[in-house]
């Protein structure tokens, strides 16, 4: 595996305008901070796991990287080029290097197209002059790669199971030989045994093609299995970023600690004696986030300083940074 950095995200911020009901047209819309000041970098062959509860901005982060939602500020540097500064047509050539896999396997496939057409679409879009026989060969090739029989090309998505549909989605993402695949909760709609198959398939493909992955999930055990680095998000803010093992062995942020204590262990004896850190209360509104540290309203360690100052990202160990006042 090479260690060349391919993607660098710097201080990425995404806001949405929210107008509440009864507002006049000239009333200024409220800002919803979906993603706030996130930075990370990713090398070829690496996997970044992104975890956090619903509504914390995981998917928005992914969509901002591929420019599906406009970013407020920040940079997305892809192989030395800032994608956010590029126009639509200039960004097009980078699109073939970044592909995406979606949460709902069936909904991500056009029900009126057959599998062959679906998988070939990115190829036909970016290389419209490819001869038909080459397209067919490439489709067959990529179908073998994801473990689908190539005699299924003429079938339609509704004739497949969820796991197969997800394989089709992966095949579509792979056909252009991308360098980065963003997986937006690719396994959360599948049952556990199929989850394992799909995750292992992704890992095999990663090794074979030297892919970088951004893997979004809310299931920590799945993320642990696949990731080299893990980022924990809370209310659009990054609270902890570290290597996969570090985050499991020495979680530094109180939120991460609580998340990890909630992962069930498949051993009744250990599970019974485990100390569970419960987080009280609900996620605060992202339209009106708490001052200072966003987690302070639910944090057990919260003190005065937490509401006054926003914690900086500090390196507590090599490549392990945390946003908390009580870590040195």
């Amino acid at each position: 595996m090479s260690n060349q950095t391919i993607l660098e995200v710097e201080n990425l911020t995404v806001n949405f305008d929210v107008s509440s009901e009864g507002d006049m047209p000239w009333t200024k819309a409220k800002k919803l901070q979906a993603v706030n000041d996130i930075s990370f970098s990713l090398s070829a062959g690496e996997t970044l796991g992104v975890v956090g509860e619903s509504g914390c901005g995981k998917s928005t982060l992914a969509r901002a990287i591929v420019k599906m939602v406009p970013a407020e500020s920040g940079k997305v540097v892809w192989l030395g080029n800032d994608l956010l500064g590029l126009s639509h047509s200039e960004a097009r050539q980078y699109r073939k290097q970044i592909q995406m896999i979606f949460q709902d396997p069936l909904a991500s496939l056009n029900p009126r197209m057959n599998i062959g057409e679906i998988i070939a679409e990115p190829l036909r879009t970016h290389y419209p002059k490819t001869p038909e026989s080459d397209v067919k060969a490439r489709v067959r090739d990529v179908m073998h790669k994801v473990g689908l029989l190539d005699n299924l090309v003429n079938r339609y998505p509704h004739e497949f199971s969820g796991g197969q549909c997800q394989r089709i989605g992966i095949a579509r993402a792979l056909i252009l030989k991308p360098k980065l695949i963003i997986c937006d909760e690719p396994v959360s709609a599948l049952d556990v045994s199929i989850q394992a198959q799909v995750v292992n398939l992704l890992m095999d493909l990663q090794e074979e093609m030297d892919l970088a992955l951004i893997f979004i999930a809310h299931d920590l055990s799945v993320v642990k299995h696949i990731s080299t680095k893990i980022m924990v998000l809370y209310l659009g803010n990054m609270v902890e970023l570290a290597n996969s093992n570090d985050i499991y062995q020495s979680p530094s942020h109180p939120y991460t600690q609580a998340l990890i204590s909630a992962v069930p262990i498949p051993d009744p004896n250990v599970e019974k004696n485990k100390e569970l850190i419960l987080i009280e209360g609900d996620l605060p509104s992202p339209i009106n986030p708490p001052s200072g540290c966003v987690f302070r309203t639910r944090c057990q360690k919260a003190q005065d300083i937490c509401s006054q100052q926003k914690p900086e990202y500090k390196e507590v160990a090599t490549s392990h940074s945390v946003a908390c006042h009580f870590n040195d």
């Binding site: 591929v66 599906m68 097009r92 699109r95 073939k96 970044i98 592909q99 995406m100 979606f102 949460q103 709902d104 909904a107 991500s108 496939l109 056009n110 029900p111 009126r112 197209m113 679409e121 990115p122 879009t125 970016h126 989605g169 579509r172």
Partner: peptide
């Protein structure tokens, strides 16, 4: 807002092609 439209957008399919290839056939 279906994911297959989003998938096409991420791939870089043009708006016109998305309308004719993905939206209209599903409207038929």
């Amino acid at each position: 807002n279906m994911e297959f439209i989003e998938a096409a957008k991420v791939t870089g399919v043009s708006d016109f092609k998305i309308i004719t290839r993905h939206i209209v056939p599903n409207l038929l």
